[in-house]
Structures are given as C-alpha cells and as structure tokens.
Design a protein around this nucleic acid. Structure first.
Length: 301
DNA sequence: AGTATTTGATTGGTTACATCA
DNA sequence: GATGATGTAACCAATCAAATA
C-alpha cells in the first residue's frame, strides 16, 4: 500500500484564475488553487475519513477561492460610470476632461497638452498640495535608455525637491483595480489611456501594475505555502496512522501463527478498485494459486 | 510617540525584439 | 541571407521610504 500525493492536475494549470486573460470578468479577484491531494487509499480524501481535517482543507480538486480585492463593492458602485468603463473596452467613454476634473490628481495639475508619454507629458508644475516628483526634472523613466534612468531622476533631492510620495485616491485605485481585473498587464495604448483617464503619468500606471502583479504573486505564494503546509500536516498524520496500523497488523500476524502459514501473496489489493482480494488460503499452499486480478468490475473495467 | 503595514517609487538585472554593419 | 553587436522597451525581484493604521 502506498500513498500517492498529487499536487495539481496536469490537465489544469496551476495558475491564478485571474491571470487567465480569457477568463470571464469576475466580481472579485480570486485565486484558484487546483492542488488536488489525492491519497491512493481505499476511501480517499473525498470520503473524508482518511484525511482528518480534510473538509476545511478541501483536498479534492475543488478550487480554493480567495478574495484578494481590497475594495468593496460599495466603492465600485460609487465609482463613476465613466471610470468603470475601461478605455480599451469602449470607445464611447465620457470626456476625459470631466474625469480629470473630478479626479484631480494629487500628483500634479495637468495641462491639456500633456499626455503622450512619460517624457512628453507630465511637464506641468507640481503645484498640488501633495506634490510628487518635480516634473521639471524631465522624468523619463518610461523610456529608459541603456543607462536605465536619467541622472535627473536620481538626484531630485539634490535640487531641494525632497520627494513626496503621492497616494492615489480611492477612485483611482478602484479604477486601476478594475483595469487589473481585465488585464493584469497593459500594452502601451492601454497604459496611455488609463493614465489619461486617471490623470496620472503613464509611468505611474505602469508602476502601479508592476507593484500589483508583484504583490498578487506574493500573496498567492503565501497562500500556496500555507496550503501545502496543511497538506503536509495531513499527510504526516495519515502516515503516522498507517504506520500504526501496520504495526498492529504485524503484531496480529505474530500472535496468530495460523496466518503465518499463508502465502505472502494471499492478501492482494486490486489496483483498480483497491479492494482486498483473498485466495483460498487453505488450498493455496497446495495448488497453483489463481490470479486474483484482473477481475471484472461492474463498470466493465 | 512608536510600531507595523501598506503602497508608490527606484534600482539593477533579464529577456525579447528591432536595427545595423 | 546569416550573424553578432547594440539600443530599446517591458518585465521582474528586491528594496526603499512616505503615508497610513
């Protein structure tokens, strides 16, 4: 008898469902963990009796759904319609100018001319109360050269402009979350559209998505780790139980010598149905033993 | 006020792709 | 046309640090 641990299903990639770009939009971001823990035992985990603690563990192939979204439906419902319509999903969105007016960026006061890209845009003066990086420095991180970042980008403090970190507004964050649900990566067009709609620099949108991906991945890793720990614990317990059972069987064997005369192969497990099959033990020693398997199951197997 | 957490941003590395000699 | 060097862009992991709880 052996334990078979199956982590995952070859036919079902071990991925977070929301990473599946073809997956339909969900109400929230869920992480599916199709990590099946299959115990090759009579009465598997689905039966529940061999896997103590199995029900909460859901050791079957049922995916473990976890909500990673921080914003509540209320926030979403409060999100203006034009913000809920993603730029790349519809061409009939509201005037971005009105959006800009409503969601005035804490980071800057944009001019009408700015947009295009990280270099071309965001050249207006950072005269907001919570200003971020000085736009005059010509931050061009979106088009990094081989030297990666411009010198101006690195020494903003030297210009007496101590960097002040912006915090995106709830609406901006919620909209970015919505966008992330649709696409966890952005093409340049989408990035520009988002940046324009949210009144952010494309680089900020890019960074937000990068951070979001990284932190989603981290969270998923933590969840996976916890899950595997629990699987490990369950298997350890099961192993302990089986070891104990084995000891009991061995002691039974020694205390009842009648059985010791039986051939070792008298007890055989069908690999298909995992039923214990026995032969006519008394005659087994004298006659050639019939093979217990294969036998015919009800289903024809 | 001090601490932990969250989150925007930076840095350095890797990879893919385009261009050119 | 094939090949290597170079530049560019996108991404990621690690990290920092400001803002917030």
């Amino acid at each position: 008898m052996e334990l078979a641990l199956t982590l995952g299903d070859a036919s079902r990639p071990f991925t977070a469902s929301f990473l599946d770009k073809d997956a339909p939009s969900r109400a929230n971001i869920g992480v599916e963990l199709p990590v099946g823990l299959g115990l090759g035992l009579a009465g598997d985990c689905r039966g529940g009796d061999v896997c103590p603690g199995a029900p909460p563990l859901a050791l079957s192939s049922a995916p473990l759904q976890l909500d990673l979204l921080s914003f509540s439906p209320a926030v979403v419902s409060n999100t203006p319609q034009q913000f809920r319509s993603l730029p790349w999903l519809t061409e009939t969105r509201s005037d971005p100018a009105s959006v800009s007016a409503r969601f005035l960026d804490v980071n800057r006061l944009p001019s009408a001319a700015e947009e295009v890209d990280d270099c071309g845009g965001a050249q207006s003066s950072p005269n907001s109360a919570v200003s971020s990086f000085p736009m005059e420095l010509g931050l061009c991180s979106g088009s990094r050269t081989s030297s990666k970042r411009s010198d101006a980008e690195a020494d903003d403090d030297e210009n007496g402009m101590a960097r002040k970190k912006l915090r995106l507004s709830k609406e901006q964050s919620a909209f970015l979350e919505e966008s992330f649900k649709e696409h966890n990566t952005l093409n340049p067009k989408q990035k520009l559209a988002l940046a324009k709609q949210l009144n952010l620099r494309p680089r900020q949108v890019e960074v937000w998505f990068q951070n979001r991906r990284a932190r989603t991945k981290l969270k998923k890793t933590e969840i996976d780790c916890e899950y595997l720990k629990r699987c490990c614990k369950t298997l350890t317990e099961e192993n302990r139980r089986l070891q104990k059972e084995l000891l009991e069987l061995r002691s039974l064997k020694t205390s009842q010598p009648f059985y010791t005369q039986l051939p070792a192969t008298t007890l055989t497990m069908c690999p298909s149905c995992e039923r214990i099959a026995t032969c006519a033990a008394s005659t087994a020693a004298l006659k050639p033993r019939p093979l217990p398997f294969p036998h015919t199951h009800k289903d024809g197997s």
